[in-house]
Write a protein that binds this DNA or RNA. Structure first.
Lengths: 364, 364
DNA sequence: TGTTGCTATGTTAACGAGAACAACCCCTGG
DNA sequence: CCAGGGGTTGTTCTCGTTAACATAGCAACA
């Protein structure tokens, strides 16, 4: 071989062990070599093109299996500008709502051959969602699902244009496609239930101030009371946890006037229940308690918890659907908006107050 | 221009709107053109190389910002054979253990600049984990964390060689790096606690037969009884749910001989508690109940549940660490194995039996 | 003044896959 | 016997990025 010329056969350096133990898998070329065909033919087999003779196809398939080949996702993504994956952005994934939605999104996505990549923001108040979303733009995803529950409402969520997105937060109504439960009316429904049992008013243990669902649920409670002409007591502000419910419940238990308590969510209600029990106030004889969410354990409290059921799985499925619709077709002017219905689940934690002499004839 | 020659300026076709609305973002070349430098210089800026004059760097950064550029992840992944992402494989993500581990893994991963991609298998018994894991090989991940809880133990998990992996399943001891709680001894600890209170024996509500943790916890319970010379009653087999605990609890409540019940997990214990309460058997006066996991709500049952605390967050963090260690350095012969300690959390659901006349002097 | 040595920048090639096109086979029909 | 055509297979090129190498500019120094 002439000096200064590169030998074509030693040209490709083996660089498999370059990056700490993790070797690159076999490529389409390795398969091609083994099957004695061109790379393109291998590609045809792996994309399911029909223009391959049966015998050739078998040979290629055998080679693939022998090498344990599977197509490189990054190369495909680079080539066709799609990642086959969607991002799921939330504060945390270890709570009932988020984890159920996550599971549902994942199942829906996998059914359509999409992957799901998780993203959190450490401090939503400080970092905000936008940078995280932006980082994802070229990163790895074709679309984005955002579950916002805490976060300052002042911050406007700005996403790269053209990025398919679905948000579970009613604050983006009309800006981004969104899927939510009808928090406000559901909460009102809970209050109406208690009022219709004869309670004079309903006390409230709210969620954190910076949470939109918490705000809506609280507004629903208030509206229910106001429309019924009932007194509106000062709500106790919690943070979704049973702990905060316990604290609020302890205070409420001390007030003999309290006969009905609505809670921002079930966990809070669990804490309230524990506090009432500890204080010797019976549920529902002395005090009625109602929750929100219908987590799986709500059937097993003592007494079983009356609550408003949220269909998290449906929310997750719908969120994915909205994103997929945008990936499939050019964006329409119409911004879709899905409200997932809730339902009142009557169990044993609510009952008429003992002194239910005052009949409330109102029915509207 | 000579015929048959392609005009260099119209060469690149605009194909942005090709795939349904979602346009490709600006590429490194767009930035280069705007900043009037070469693509390589842009690359140098975005990888933080120092060999760029300050003035040039500023010009490039300005161009990046103006175009909203961010580097294409697929291209980078293709180029250096890394995806900057790890896979997390589990049956479901909507239960306490899985969701807490998921959240911990995600936080640890993000802290090191890694993404997390979720994967489930629809039917582990049928599909098995291996195909799912294999699909991930070239797919999108540099490493893999597997949370196995159900799945037939007969199936051996075979992973592509060289794929960094960490498994939360003691069945792969010595085969793959793994992180687990010491289920067996923890469960024994729970039984010992009850026996030491004076109970003659401890009844058991087990997890599903095809779950390894369930099997270990059950074995721990049995060992505890056998070593203490106590009678070993037939366990009730549940499926981790409060529902199954309720069913078992109803049966157990009917047997006046039963004074102590250990449960495969907290949810099951919640069901048992509900059944006992409904049957009029008091806890802990008539029957002691102990759980496993220490989910957040366990403090708020009536009475508060004595249980064995699992540190899910630690498990998640450790799993990620084990995977990272393999990505960073060539694989060592030693297969690491982490056992995360548990602790007995004493609350109010366990107490000596009422007829605690039989003193058990044994101590170990 | 020409060589050396450095810094800043540009050029080339390659990562793996697949669309577009070219080329080849073999068979049929004029 | 050769043109035409369908069925298979191979070649080329590109996606966006960056390592490796090449080059240009300039200062220091003998």
């Amino acid at each position: 071989m002439a000096p200064g010329q590169t030998c074509p056969y030693t040209h490709r350096m083996p660089r498999n062990d370059a990056r700490g133990g993790h070797t690159r898998g076999p490529s389409i070329r390795d398969v091609a070599r083994l099957a004695e065909v061109s790379a393109q033919t291998v590609s045809r087999v792996s994309t399911g093109s029909d223009a391959v003779r049966q015998e050739t196809r078998d040979r290629v398939l055998r080679a693939m299996e022998q090498l344990g080949y599977s197509p490189n996702h990054a190369a495909r993504a680079l080539r066709d500008g799609r990642f086959g994956s969607i991002g799921l952005l939330a504060h945390r994934f270890d709570r009932t709502g988020e984890s159920m939605i996550t599971d549902a999104v994942l199942r829906a996505a996998q059914a359509e051959g999409y992957g799901v990549t998780l993203v959190t923001v450490q401090d939503a108040a400080h970092d905000g969602w936008t940078p995280a979303a932006n980082r994802l733009r070229h990163q790895t995803v074709d679309g984005l699902i955002i579950i916002r529950s805490e976060g300052h409402s002042t911050e406007q969520l700005a996403l790269p244009t053209g990025m398919p997105v679905a948000v579970s937060d009613s604050r983006v109504h009309g800006v981004y496609p969104c899927v939510v439960s009808d928090e406000l009316n559901s909460s009102r429904m809970a209050v109406d239930h208690l009022l219709s049992l004869g309670h004079r008013t309903v006390h409230y243990v709210a969620g954190p101030e910076d949470s939109e669902p918490a705000r809506l649920r609280r507004a629903g409670w208030r509206t229910g009371l106001v429309q019924a002409g009932a007194e509106v007591p000062e709500p106790h502000v919690g943070d979704w946890t049973a702990d905060s419910g316990y604290t609020a419940g302890t205070a409420l238990a001390a007030d003999p006037e309290v006969t009905a308590i609505a809670c921002a969510n079930d966990e809070t209600a669990f804490g309230v229940l524990a506090a009432l029990h500890e204080a010797g106030r019976r549920v529902p004889e002395d005090v009625s308690v109602i929750g929100f969410d219908d987590v799986s354990l709500s059937r097993f409290t003592q007494p079983p918890l009356t609550t408003v059921k949220q269909h998290f799985t449906t929310i997750g499925t719908q969120l994915f659907r909205l994103v997929m619709d945008q990936i499939g077709t050019p964006r329409t002017a119409e911004i879709p908006d899905v409200t997932v219905p809730t339902e009142l689940v009557l169990r044993a934690s609510t009952a008429p107050p003992r002194s239910a002499s005052v009949s409330r004839a109102q029915t509207g």
